[in-house]
């Protein structure tokens, strides 16, 4: 299945939910300071395991960095 993650086209295998996607990227559900949007809508952490991932979805995965 091809999805867009942070602007990059990615082929992801065996992914059903947002939780699966994040684990495949090495991000655990206990990791703080991270948020994800699916098709420009934020997916709250409590909904990660219940939110499906389908072909063509676009994701933004962010964290806080140094800035003014």
């Amino acid at each position: 299945m091809t999805v867009v993650i942070n602007g990059e086209m990615r082929d992801m295998q065996a992914i059903r939910t947002v939780g699966d996607l994040l684990r495949a990227l090495g991000i655990s559900s206990s990791q703080g300071g991270i948020a994800i949007a699916r098709n420009d809508a934020v997916v709250p952490r409590a909904r990660w395991e219940a939110t499906p991932v389908v072909e063509g979805d676009r994701f933004e995965i962010i964290t806080a960095v140094q800035g003014g």
């Binding site: 942070n6 090495g26 991000i27 933004e60 995965i61 964290t63 806080a64 960095v65 800035g67 003014g68």
Partner: peptide
């Protein structure tokens, strides 16, 4: 203190 919000680098984690 202010912080910026940026995409997580997918290849250089940890």
């Amino acid at each position: 203190v202010t912080v910026a919000i940026r995409r997580v680098p997918l290849e250089e984690r940890g």
